[in-house]
Design a protein around this nucleic acid. Structure first.
Lengths: 360, 360
DNA sequence: CAGATTTGTGTAAACGGTTACAAATAAGCG
DNA sequence: CGCTTATTTGTAACCGTTTACACAAATCTG
């Protein structure tokens, strides 16, 4: 393999391009004494080529060290075996886990993942999707249901199968997979109401361009409405996604009158922040106030007072999203479980409101 | 999504393929009354085509709604404008942040990111890289320096520029960018020694296929060795990356004799776990024991006792890695700052050892 | 054993762009 | 005003595969 030649290929420079650039299907065909069509078949549909030739071809392939050119193949077949995913961010645990799962699943099926982050910006997302389509992705994985107004047309026009993740609603139109965000928080709120809580605070992230967060808020309000309750304006705190924000907002709602007995947090960072602030404020959880969160991150179960939260199987979401697309591309018309498993994980941070020791 | 049917493509069905599939460079050329070459030039090198034609062509393009086919372009130009990144996992904050930064930077330069996770498996990584090369990536971003033995040859052969991230060592051979892991922990350890600590415990993740973690361990040992100290076997605890593991291991080292006065943790989860276990064990931090970690995740600064740790600018690593590759591909031979900014963030969890109130 | 199949290969035309080269047109100049 | 030099545009080859179609050889059939 080594000793090529040329005048003075003294050291590294690694211009290995000399001959290796020339090795294509053609060269393999010549080396094996067959036509290019046969080589192609030996690769893609081995059973259509005689064992003898197959043997010779394979031998030639790894003698020449040929690697098929995916680009050319994609052009010829009009399938890139590539899936694009656009997530708002990767720094949130659930998206990171889903992405990992997607990649794993795709890889197992011979697909490659193209990734982009929209940073919760619809325009940006749209641009990235267009880019992906230019690149010829065979399918698309997005988050949420509200996208750029022109997206639907574009997808239909180019006929790109798409699945919306982390969102599910019984009456939805598109193809989506995820938790029923509204119901999830509806149930969680119901649970708190049943325990006797009447004064609720909400500490959540902005719902801008985030229909999941919006649905969750709706769930809370719907549940409360059933009992004629509402979240008072001073108990409704919207902010960034961070622990420190959780602390601020928690303190704010807890220092306003009347003092809430239950604080529902919209994401794990806010919940952890809320709890840590309660610690700093010298409040007893859950005796003075119940705190519940969304998404189960590891630290939640390890804090001095473990946090009640909602667990969403992000991996499952990712895996099934990938699986769905692949199946659809392979022609199978599968029905994946579009609603993913969720669970309200009851831990120490939630209990009856103060002065109401046992309603349960 | 229910009642789809057949027979009556009455409404949506979106078989927009009818004519849109036919719209290519050729049709645009015809529509504009020019040759394909001119259209191509109007797109890629507008200054080479007269304003009049340019106008007409652009008009035709968006009248027909033409989207150039990236695959074909890639085949013709032999550049895919695509970069592949293989990370061990995305579930660790630093990698997630770096990935986000990479994607942002690449996007800004007109490149697309292909992503894969190797799960700390060299073979897997190699397979994924090969796949990426088949797909024609223009460059590669990897983590660490020890890869599959055949990788170097493959990369040289195909002439794919590559950068190793999260690793930097003054005497390294390849192109890499990241913190000097050894020095980082060397300094951290030195700081603890200077404060008077003599009995050290290490709680870290496995170093298998992880030269970064290995280098950090080496840094600890080197620093200790300078003062003739070593970590006793019973104080050397290696395990998984998780909070619960951090708790276990912390308890284990703290219940062995002699009791360590300083516990160095190899990652943020272990550090948080260690601290939480100290709480559960009723130990005072830092009075009874100092705890330090690696990587600054938000919760560390918010715990009742904030944690001393090392901060690595993962975004910077990612951004510069991307920038480097792009520059290299554009022909510029830039010198990025290969060593990334790091900082030992001193917080409450570290202090003088018990019975040594003031050495500082 | 001639004719109808099946099976294994080769030929050559796509796939949808880019680009070297040639040709035509416009501009510059002594 | 011819001749040289830029500037624009067109022609056609090429990028590296796949695959429809044709064809020859092997395998059946009656």
């Amino acid at each position: 393999m080594a000793g090529k030649k040329a005048s003075e290929p003294r050291t590294e420079t690694g211009h290995g391009t000399d001959q290796s650039a020339l090795v294509g299907l053609r060269q393999v065909a010549i080396a094996a004494g067959v036509s290019t069509a046969t080589v192609s078949r030996a690769i893609n549909t081995p059973h259509l080529v005689s064992p003898k030739l197959r043997e010779r071809i394979n031998e030639a392939i790894d003698r020449l060290g040929w690697v098929p050119d995916g680009t050319a193949r994609a052009l010829a077949t009009k399938r890139s075996s590539t899936i694009g995913a656009v997530f708002p961010t990767l720094t949130h645990g659930d998206f990171a886990r889903a992405t990992t799962a997607i990649q794993q699943e795709l890889q197992a099926c011979g697909y490659t993942l193209l990734l982009a982050c929209s940073d919760y910006d619809v325009e940006q997302e749209f641009r990235q999707i267009k880019k992906f389509i230019e690149r010829g992705v065979d399918g698309l994985i997005l988050v949420g249901e509200n996208h750029h107004p022109d997206l639907a047309r574009l997808l239909a026009r180019r006929n790109v199968p798409t699945i919306n993740t982390f969102v599910y609603s019984p009456d939805t139109h598109g193809t989506c997979i995820g938790p029923d965000n509204r119901k999830l928080f509806f149930d969680m709120t119901k649970y708190l109401i049943d325990m006797g809580h009447r004064v609720f605070a909400v500490v959540a992230q902005s719902v801008e361009n985030n229909d999941r967060a919006e649905a969750r808020l709706q769930g809370i309000q719907d549940a409360l409405a059933q009992d004629g309750i509402a979240v008072r304006p001073q108990h409704f705190a919207i902010g960034q996604w961070s622990i420190s924000e959780g602390r601020h907002l928690f303190r704010r709602v807890m220092t306003s009158e009347p003092r809430p007995t239950a604080v529902i947090c919209g994401n794990p960072s806010l919940a952890v922040g809320a709890y840590l602030e309660s610690l700093a404020m010298g409040l007893k959880v859950p005796d003075d106030v119940s705190i519940v969160g969304y998404d189960d991150i590891e630290v939640m179960s390890h804090l001095p007072v473990s946090l009640t939260t909602v667990r969403v199987q992000s991996e499952q979401v990712g895996r099934n999203a990938a699986r769905y697309l692949v199946a659809r591309l392979e022609g199978e018309d599968i029905e994946i479980p579009f609603q993913c498993d969720t669970e309200i994980v009851l831990r120490e941070s939630s209990g009856p409101p103060p002065g109401n020791p046992a309603t349960n």
